[in-house]
């Protein structure tokens, strides 16, 4: 298995609302964060949920989000974060803006 992302990479969670069993919570879809760690590799739970093998295994990352990016009305300090386990097929790179 080769991991597409590494710690420090900026990523965006895909915006999608498929039916079925999905382990990417709604509140981070479409949001940008930073990969903090490659934590595991695992079969795809969306397939496992239907009794299939979910192979090939896919990397699972810790992706860190600024709370103020998730919730415009976030009440706490700017430094507060949320970290979520996200499987690779839900992530896309944030394009370099050339700057």
């Amino acid at each position: 298995m080769s991991a597409r992302f590494a710690a420090g990479d900026e990523v965006r969670v895909r915006r999608a609302s498929p039916p079925g069993h999905v382990r990417t919570p709604y509140y981070i879809r479409g949001k940008e964060g930073v990969v903090s760690r490659l934590i595991a590799e695992h079969p795809n739970p969306e397939e496992l949920a239907y009794g299939r093998d979910g192979l090939p295994v896919l990397p699972v990352y810790w992706v860190r989000f600024r709370q103020s990016d998730l919730w415009p009305d976030y009440q706490g300090p700017e430094g507060d974060t949320a970290e979520v386990d996200i499987q690779e097929h839900w992530l896309e790179p944030v394009e370099d803006d050339g700057g």
Partner: peptide
């Protein structure tokens, strides 16, 4: 049973 099958059924 896979835990994700159990979860799908719950959902």
């Amino acid at each position: 049973i896979a835990i994700d099958e159990l979860r799908r059924g719950i959902e």
